[in-house]
Simulated assay, not measured.
Amino acid sequence: MGEPLTAPRATTAAPLLRADGLTVDLPAPGGGEPVRVVDGVTFDVPAGTTVGLIGESGSGKTMTALAVIGLLPERAATGGELAWRGENLLRPGTDWHRVRGHEIAMIFQDPLAALNPSLTIGRQVGEILRRAGRPRAEVRRAVADLLDRVGVPDPVRRMDAYPHELSGGLRQRAMIALALAGSPSLLLADEPTTALDVTVQARILRLLRSIQQEQGLAMLLVSHDLRVVAHVADEAVVMYAGRVAERGPAGATLRRPAHPYTRALVASVPAVRTRTALADPLPGAPATPANRPSGCAFHPRCSLARDRCRIEVPRTREVEPGRWSACHFAEEVIGS
Rank of each mutant, 00 (worst) to 15 (best):
I69S: 11
G55V: 03
A65E: 02
G30E: 07
V38E: 12
T62E: 11
P29I: 10
V35P: 10
E33H: 06
G32K: 09
D25C: 05
F43I: 04
A65H: 04
R18F: 10
V24H: 04
T62A: 10
R18S: 15
G52K: 09
A67T: 00
I54V: 15
A67P: 09
E56W: 07
V68H: 00
L26V: 13
E56D: 11
V41Q: 03
P34S: 10
S59Q: 03
T62R: 11
G40L: 02
L66P: 02
T23K: 13
T42P: 04
G55N: 01
L22R: 13
T49A: 03
I54A: 15
G40S: 00
T49F: 05
T42A: 01
R36A: 14
G31N: 09
G55M: 04
V41P: 11
L53D: 06
K61H: 06
M63G: 04
D39N: 14
K61I: 05
T62V: 09
E33V: 02
G52T: 10
V37W: 08
T50C: 15
T64S: 11
E56P: 07
V68R: 02
V37Y: 09
P34D: 09
L22Y: 11
A47V: 04
V41K: 11
V45L: 15
R36Y: 13
T64M: 08
T50E: 10
V45I: 14
S57L: 01
E56H: 01
D39T: 07
D44K: 04
E56T: 09
G52M: 10
G31E: 03
G52F: 05
V35R: 03
L26E: 04
V35L: 14
G58M: 12
T62D: 10
F43N: 03
V24I: 06
A67H: 09
L66H: 12
G60P: 03
I69P: 08
I54E: 04
T49N: 01
M63Y: 05
V41D: 06
P29G: 12
D20F: 12
T62M: 03
V24W: 01
V41E: 08
L26D: 08
E33Q: 14
D20A: 15
P29H: 14
D25T: 09
I54P: 00
G21Q: 07
G32M: 13
L22H: 12
V35F: 06
T50N: 09
V45M: 07
P27V: 03
P29C: 09
T62Y: 08
R36V: 14
L22E: 14
G31Q: 02
D44T: 02
M63R: 06
V35G: 09
G21F: 12
M63Q: 14
G60M: 00
I54L: 15
V51M: 03
S59H: 07
V41G: 06
G30F: 07
K61D: 02
G60Y: 00
V38T: 08
G48W: 02
A19I: 12
V45C: 12
V24A: 07
V37D: 12
D39V: 05
G60N: 00
G55W: 06
A65L: 07
V51L: 04
P34I: 08
A28N: 15
A28G: 13
R18C: 12
A28E: 12
G48V: 05
A65K: 06
I54M: 13
